[in-house]
Amino acid sequence: MTDKQSSPTYADQAWQGVTTIVENVQLARDTYRVRLRCPEIAQAVVPGQFVMLRLPGSNDPLLGRPLAVYDVLADKADGAWGIDVVYLVVGQMTGRLAGLAAGSLLEAWGPLGNGFPPLPAEHLILVAGGIGQTPFLMLAEEALGRRRFGNPPRKTPLADRVTFCYGARSKDYLAGVEDFQRAGVDVRLATDDGSAGHHSLVTELIAPAVEQSGPAVRRIVCCGPEAMMEATAAEARRLGVPCQVSLETPMACGIGICFSCVARIRDASGNWDYRRTCVEGPVFDADDVVF
């Protein structure tokens, strides 16, 4: 762990500017996918990083919003040219965003944050609650050797198997399941009301997934509501599987200058201090997080 005032993941590779919305479509209840033309971000981003998006010229809402990059669009002629961002409408900014048509402009800066470290795992288990699923498609595509991300493209150990445990309130909130299936991911669903998959908490899917791969080197990564991440971290510890969590904290800037987005993170001596999720995270070892 670096000291509080420095970080290896400052926004040194970040681009800032105005992007054009190519497409903005509804995927599920209150859930949308916006496709942005921004080659600079598309070429640099690695799984687990995020971007800040802001309505141009607006003083209300004033600030940008941090949103995970869901996928990178690329073609043979232009290489990586755009990004997909999947978002849940929760407030004023995302509400306005959902109403923007193709051709509208958005301010953006990114990619930001550390992203998921390229750690070896024969069996990678992704655990998501609700909109927490958005950083996982790229990670799955990368781990299965279907895509490479970053500039230069980063090298990452391949997994034999990727299992995606995905929980939501109900069936109509599930978004992008077919994207994961198309990438070769074993998708297991849980809903609070039993309308799709298991009628249970998503954390109850973890142990069966882990047990399925026998003696393999495993790794769990998790993103979702805090209580769900805390439960996942406890389950990973019980099962003896290393676990990383991607924290979602309110951010004002996304680039490390406001000190808003702090979480309680332990150092080597076991003491905790407030650390900036934007530049020291959002991905942390689960054992380092004080929930």
Partner: peptide, 25 residues
């Protein structure tokens, strides 16, 4: 100084309210 507990900022109309609490080393 450890600074204040989160949430440390909240957006208001055309403004930002903060209570960072001089978090510094």
């Amino acid at each position: 100084r450890q600074g204040n507990p989160p949430p440390r900022t909240v957006e208001t109309t055309a403004g930002l309210l903060n209570s960072i609490g001089l978090d510094n080393d």
